[in-house]
Design a protein around this nucleic acid. Structure first.
Lengths: 198, 198
DNA sequence: ATTTTTATTGACTATTTGGTCAGTATTGAC
DNA sequence: GTCAATACTGACCAAATAGTCAATAAAAAT
């Protein structure tokens, strides 16, 4: 009985994610979503307060998924270099295996809005993401490193990953990327370490 | 007499650029623009066919400005490395000195849309940008390098620049960036060369 | 089988927003 | 100062879109 409802909610989220990434969150309409989900328009409003809520829900879930990947290692990183490589790998796999969620998170100006001091609902999940990176990396750094510098590192990591992978995704097939990306990632990691002052 | 009109047009473009980058192109409304420009709503339609035209105009101009920077060197690059560093520098300065135009060009999914085969008006200027990078870089490469590989290089360059600089811009002041970015850029350039197979 | 509860629907309304145009203001020429 | 040309205006209209709700269908409980 709730099963049907859960299935419908899932269909709605899937459709919304598709529409949001195909066009953009701002350009997407409710009817596009419900049509793609193959349900009536009113159904969306039974599952979500308004259009904003479905966006927030999807963004929160995507961040949760990305964080889960960041937290699970094949082998525990022992050095900062290894940690950073793990971070980049986690992001890369996320961008390949959960392409739509990746695009949802990093498309548009979500990140840029951090500049403003007022953080509304939509931006909060992204703060979690930044903090997660901070938390993961800080143990590997010598003590007394400025908090703001860690934050900047997080920005650089996320920025590089977003930029490179999203553009790479335009022209490259996942298989092709895997090999060519290796030297890029290595050197990027090295320069990040330099940036951190060691 | 035309002076007033020119001034108004300028005010409109300036206001539109601000609104487009503050929110997003999709989310921006005509009235927000005209209000910010401190003119009547109808005035916008005297200067531009419709909302789309002011977007295209701004994007075209931004690409023109970026290309001008790409084309002007302090010293002519002699090696591929130097050329790539110049490219990155040009983008960096553009992102600092023409922040709004930079954001307009690279915000949202403009770049991702390249995946689709149909290129509408909006995407055309961006193609110019990609071709410009291709044109600048190809002389430094040994002949017979696959055209698609150059294209992918362009994507990687633009992606890295976008990602890194946009995130860096969140937390760093322009002055601070200048020094810390140096090693990152160097190593990125090196790995790009590796990527190109030499 | 009947009743109750839950879920879905899509025609409907309300609101927002793109775009128009008759009227007004400004400018420059004489 | 008067007139013509140009630029601007904002109330207005039309289209698109968000959001509602009484009617309907499906599922669960009896």
């Amino acid at each position: 009985m709730q099963k049907r409802a859960r299935k419908t909610r899932k269909k709605l989220k899937r459709a919304a994610l598709d529409v949001f990434t195909e066009k953009s969150v701002d350009a997407a309409t409710v009817e596009e979503i419900t049509e793609k989900a193959d349900v009536g328009k009113g159904t969306l409003y039974q599952h979500f307060e308004d259009k904003e809520e479905i966006v927030v829900t999807l963004v929160e879930e995507a961040v949760k998924h990305l964080i889960r990947r960041i937290r699970s290692y094949d082998t525990v990183p022992e050095t900062l270099e290894e940690m950073l490589e793990h971070l980049l790998n986690a992001h890369y796999r996320f961008s390949v295996e959960a392409r739509e969620e990746f695009l949802l998170l990093f498309q548009g100006k979500l990140l840029l809005r951090l500049e403003s001091d007022t953080l509304d609902e939509l931006e909060e999940p992204y703060i979690h993401y930044l903090e997660e990176i901070e938390e993961q990396v800080s143990p590997y750094l010598s003590p007394r490193i400025a908090a703001i510098k860690i934050r900047r590192l997080a920005c650089a990591v996320a920025g590089f990953v977003f930029g490179f992978f999203s553009f790479a995704a335009i022209g490259m097939r996942p298989e092709e990327i895997e090999s060519s990306i290796q030297p890029l990632r290595r050197t990027f990691v090295k320069s990040l370490c330099t940036f951190l002052g060691r």
